[in-house]
Design a protein around this nucleic acid. Structure first.
Length: 271
DNA sequence: AGATATTCCTGGAGGC
DNA sequence: TGCCTCCAGGAATATC
């Protein structure tokens, strides 16, 4: 199943990159075309060549490479972005090459080009357009705070879960899975959820995300497949992409469209 | 102000 | 087999 990178996939990717980049000096960085979603920073090569990667991290679906020169490379995998380690050869849509002093080569491939690569001053990261606008990580979600954010909102809960300013890192797949886990109908108005229900939702989000990260870690072993691809793994979903199949409760999974995208849920156990 | 629609992009799937 | 249309989706932007 070709799934879109969400928080767990980015986390797995970053852990894979950490193994080959942490403490290493960037000898060479080369855009192979000028842009993904946006143009690459024109001074990318100048600012990163010769710098040492001091730490890697993740915020929401953004991957972060911090350097000893006070710059942070911020990447987003969009819908189809992936990093490969030491590729045998270059493919179509290999948009960015990075080589360490040791000769490790990394390639960012993104056929649909919904991804992005930006360079931000590390001390300005929290006020940068992408990362700065993010809500809390699922780990830091507070049910009472979330409940008060939902108050008065008439939009369906599913739509608000996709809003990165409310929770960072959820995409269509894990939003569907979390709502299923919490037994919440995706069409319910967010403002009408009880405090107790929001508590259940927060727990479900954490579980779904943690299990996916766990699956990524155990499936990939060393966080790279034999072909060097980082971050993608197969995970079995309860409702996502399972229209017409039976839910664990005996109900039948339905697909509906909400604000232009698919929602999968079980009408029997999600009220 | 908040909710929803549109835009970007390409590969793959399905129809005829 | 080949051509066509449609669909997937994150996030920025536009519009209601």
């Amino acid at each position: 199943m070709a799934s879109v990178p969400e928080l767990p996939e980015v986390e797995t990717t970053v852990r894979g990159l950490e193994k080959v980049l942490l403490g290493r000096r960037i000898a060479h960085i080369e855009p192979r075309r000028g842009d993904l979603r946006r143009a690459f920073p024109p001074d990318l090569g100048q600012r990163l060549t010769g710098s040492t990667v001091t730490a890697l991290g993740r915020r929401g679906k953004f991957g972060l490479l911090h350097t000893d020169r006070g710059d942070t490379l911020v990447f987003h995998l969009g819908m189809s972005g992936k990093w490969r380690v030491d590729p045998d050869e270059l493919h179509a849509h290999d948009h960015l090459l990075l080589e360490t002093e040791e000769g490790k080569r990394l390639v960012l491939n993104d056929p649909r080009r919904f991804g992005s690569v930006d360079l931000v001053k590390t001390d300005k990261l929290q006020s940068s357009p992408g990362v700065g606008a993010l809500g809390p990580e699922p780990t830091d979600l507070d049910a009472d705070v979330l409940h008060s954010i939902f108050r008065g909102r008439s939009a369906p809960i599913k739509a608000l879960l996709l809003d990165q300013r409310i929770v960072a890192g959820l995409g269509n797949i894990y939003a569907c899975e979390a709502l299923h886990r919490a037994h919440i109908n995706p069409r319910r108005a967010a403002g009408r959820l009880s405090r107790q229900t929001v508590k259940r939702l927060v727990a479900a989000i954490r579980e779904v995300i943690d299990e996916a990260i766990e699956a990524g870690g155990s499936t990939l072993r060393d966080y790279a497949r034999p072909d060097g691809e980082l971050g993608y793994f197969s995970k079995r979903f309860a409702v996502y992409d399972r229209e017409g199949k039976t839910c664990g409760c005996g109900g039948v999974v339905r697909r509906i469209v909400q604000s232009g995208r698919s929602t999968f849920y079980c009408p029997r156990c999600q009220r």
